[in-house]
Amino acid sequence: MTIELTINGEVRTVTADPRTALLDVLRDSCRLTGAKAVCREGFCGACTVLVDGEAVPSCLRPIGMLDGRSIVTIEGLAHFETPNPVQQAFIDHDVVQCGMCFPGMVMTLTAFLETNPAPSRGEVKAALSGNICRCTGYERIVDAVLSIQDMRKVSGR
């Protein structure tokens, strides 16, 4: 089956079994390896991308259902030299460890802050219920998110 979709602003035609997970198309066909395949069951969030602006686990999205949709991956979120405020806050607070969960964390939190630009600590934690990190123990991630002052920059991407 041939599917046409937009990935990071570029229209692409993908020929694949419609049941193929978006994650595999991104990683294997497009070689966009920022989204990580960790659990493949929707629990960990490491594969999170934006589909029409909504943060979703790409391991659970069959490509056949995405015809005409717009996908943004971590590679398309911001140029690496101009990180978005979420990424910048994580750099400034030195929260990264092994880093495997962070592309997904960034996608989830970027989408979250667009709808809730001034969250409480509890809301940030609730927003992370689908993003697991094995290394950091989360609290510093939450501290970093709460430090973000200029939300407009997040939504202005």
Partner: peptide, 19 residues
């Protein structure tokens, strides 16, 4: 000292073996 690998890890550019 902040981590020099943070920027690439946060922007999905770091290539682990699996990548």
């Amino acid at each position: 000292l902040p981590r020099r690998d943070a920027q690439d890890k946060l922007t999905g550019r770091t290539r682990y073996t699996i990548d």
